[in-house]
Design a protein around this nucleic acid. Structure first.
Lengths: 192, 192
DNA sequence: ACGCTGCGAGACGCCTACGTTTCGCTGTGA
DNA sequence: TCACAGCGAAACGTAGGCGTCTCGCAGCGT
């Protein structure tokens, strides 16, 4: 995962960085089908030969660019299981509102439908996020805070699904507060 | 909506039909960004001049093609509110599994992110579907079969969201049975 | 200080799509 | 029956991306 830097020429480092940045920007803005090596080079302020020096082509470039999106998501650790679930869902709301990941999402979904490698990345990326939620649910069940017969996987989908639904299908704006609303609707209310 | 046929040349009728068909096929297969007038013409077995004779360009063509996807969805009328909701959700599962709409969905989401007209179409299409579910929920509440404090809009999103989530985000296969599982999880179980 | 190497720029031949035009051909409607 | 209109095919010049190559430059490591 974390190599000891093999004395890489800083010029190479810098080129790779600005090119991968430009790739994600371009992807988010015009989509995968319309994205070209030349448009990426223009946006990056780079000769296209420099891109071909480091990558085989468009798909190879995209795959590398997507890797840079991966970032560890810290699972919430404070409060009751229910509160931690709300917090994680709120983090998802935030991420889907502003992040570069969110901006690239439509293009990513489209590209995933065309290329199997991108599809694997996409599913894996989402899967990693969802696993955190599933873990929280399992903990909650183990702690007796949630019903023992709750299906954690299905529940995680029911919790996260509506947020993606709004982002991708209806375009309806949403704020942090939907997170708690969804949890209140889905998880049996504690006696209060 | 339903004009009296203005004596249209059957050759024109036929051309429009095969071209719009080919447009949707092309859209589903290679996406909006990669789709070209020439690729549509090739697939339709048509001279590209014939396309330019009827449409201004790619976007104009796409908009017309999308219109042909619209089809009335008959809301279920038999059984309890809960059973009708399950039935409607099952219909959604079917539609997301097999239909041309589903095949075009990734491209559609991508195109909606680039063009406002497509976005309006997409949101409206989804909105029309969701309205049926909301109506069912409202009926159920009015009939006393569902709790009076249930938010019908949010509930419809929580019901449908997970199915889209699987289709677009995780790629996990799903069958009719998820519909009932989701309803059982979300709607308070009737005393049984 | 200096040889090396990654760089931006841009030219290359090739290919494909653009949107328009022309050409016979054939089905249509009177 | 026959004028006409829509058709497929193909050619047009233009534009732009492909992937490769060659420059001269400037920042790199020794």
């Amino acid at each position: 995962m974390n190599d000891i830097p093999p004395e890489v020429d800083p010029r190479v480092e810098r080129s790779r960085r600005v090119i991968l940045e430009a790739t994600l920007d371009e992807l988010g803005e015009i989509g995968y089908g319309a994205m070209t090596i030349e448009s990426v080079a223009r946006r990056a302020g780079v000769g296209k030969a420099t891109i071909y020096r480091h990558w085989q082509g468009k798909l190879d470039l995209l795959r590398d660019a997507l890797e840079t999106l991966k970032r560890p998501i810290p699972p919430p650790t404070e409060g009751s299981a229910r509160e931690r679930i709300v917090a994680l869902l709120e983090a998802l709301v935030e991420a889907l509102g502003e992040s570069r990941w969110s901006k690239c999402m439509p293009a990513l979904i489209d590209a995933a439908a065309r290329d199997e490698t991108v599809q694997r990345f996409h599913h894996q990326f989402v899967g990693a996020r969802r696993k955190i939620m599933v873990d929280l649910l399992v903990e909650g069940i183990a702690a007796g805070e949630l019903p023992a017969d709750l299906d954690p996987v299905l529940t995680s989908e029911v919790l996260a699904g509506p947020i993606f639904y709004r982002r991708l299908m209806t375009g309806e704006p949403f704020g942090r507060s939907v997170a708690r609303q969804i949890v209140d609707l889905v998880l049996p209310t504690p006696i209060s």
